[in-house]
């Protein structure tokens, strides 16, 4: 067994803090982008309205059509300029300076974060997910990287505040709540399944994190669309930077489908490992119970998409509940419930 490099471990801790700070800056930039874009939208919109009113005045039409421009499919509305249904980058979106700063800083933060996690792995001479601190820091890295990689193709910057905010939170929780010096693995964790089972679990969880954000936005957007259709004023104007509820739902479904297959694999790989470690592939340990609950909830989500009356808002709720179960499984179950998974270094 290789010797622990405590010096390198100390550097890892330092860089983890630096990464958290950099993420915090990126988070502020994204939040600033939301606030500022809200303002730009209003300016753009009032300009358009004024222009339109002038035209109407010259024609002499007395009908007030204020709401026409507020509807999700209003032709002159700027929704189409800031974001489109397939979430590809569009011309006008390039002007969001604060968001661009946010993305750049997030990349820098991720680079520091990669160093912190990799140096920890080298210091310990094993995979960097053997206790709660390592799950959190590595999990946060995967969430950040998945988000940044998706950003290369799709304009999901409207989720930046949430995702990078969560990553910042995870790093803070890890460094403040569960500081754990580098150490060897206890015998129960010395298995190749640690690499397979946990890595896929972390990856699936980070995908579920992204769909959680999409589903929450979908609920807000659906509510806003319904209100707009009923002719009520637009209270959540920043949602103009967010695609329609249907587009969010479709995108969330595609990611959830991938994540569900990964979660199924996590569950099965866990069962194989449990067979080798504890002599039974399934024994209703608390962690197993919750992994199963999450699996069933997302299975329900997939079925809901094929059931009339359950698409849209209801399936979004299932996706959200599923994610809350994941958070519960990772936090409360790990910390407060006594079970076979309790050696996770809490």
């Amino acid at each position: 067994m290789p010797t622990i490099n405590e010096q390198l471990g100390a550097y890892s801790d330092l860089f983890m803090l630096l990464a958290a700070m950099a993420y915090a800056i990126a988070f502020i930039s994204f939040a600033w982008d939301l606030a500022k874009s809200n303002q730009t939208i209003r300016e753009l919109e009032s300009g358009l309205l004024a222009e339109e009113a002038k035209q109407l005045a010259t024609v002499g039409a007395a009908t007030t059509t204020e709401n026409r421009y507020r509807g999700p499919h209003a032709p002159a509305a700027d929704d189409g300029l800031l974001v489109n249904e397939s979430m590809n980058y569009v011309r006008k979106a390039g002007k969001r300076t604060a968001a661009r700063v946010g993305v750049s800083v997030a990349w820098i933060a991720a680079a520091i974060h990669v160093f912190a996690v990799v140096s920890r792995a080298i210091a310990a001479g094993r995979v960097p997910w053997g206790n709660m601190y390592e799950f959190l820091t590595t999990g946060a890295l995967v969430v950040a990287l998945v988000f940044l990689v998706v950003l290369l193709k799709k304009d999901l910057r409207f989720m930046g505040t949430f995702v990078i905010g969560l990553v910042t939170l995870m790093l803070c929780a890890a460094t403040m709540g569960f500081p754990t010096p580098v150490a060897h693995l206890v015998p129960a964790l010395q298995s190749p399944w640690l690499i397979i089972h946990v890595s896929i679990a972390v990856l699936a969880s980070s995908l579920f994190t992204i769909t959680f954000a999409l589903s929450v936005l979908q609920l807000f957007q659906a509510d806003r669309q319904a209100k707009l259709a009923a002719g009520k004023p637009d209270r959540l104007a920043f949602l103009r930077m967010v695609p329609s509820a249907a587009a969010l739902e479709n995108f969330a479904y595609r990611i959830n489908a991938v994540a569900f297959v990964m979660w199924t694999f996590t569950l099965m790989a866990g069962a194989v490992w449990a067979e080798a470690a504890w002599g039974r592939y399934w024994g209703w340990d608390t962690k197993e119970v919750w992994t199963f609950v999450i699996w069933v909830v997302f299975a329900g989500y997939l079925h809901a998409r094929a059931t009339r009356g359950w698409t849209g808002t209801r399936s979004a709720w299932l996706s959200i509940i599923g994610y809350l179960c994941i958070v519960f499984n990772f936090t409360v179950v790990n910390i407060y419930f006594n079970g076979l998974h309790s050696y996770a270094g809490v």
């Binding site: 067994m1 010797t3 622990i4 405590e6 010096p181 150490a183 060897h184 693995l185 206890v186 015998p187 010395q190």
Partner: peptide
């Protein structure tokens, strides 16, 4: 583990 200062005495192998 007899090297670590923080995890001294933690079992490594049974």
């Amino acid at each position: 583990d007899r090297e670590s200062t923080t995890h001294f005495g933690q079992p490594i192998d049974f």
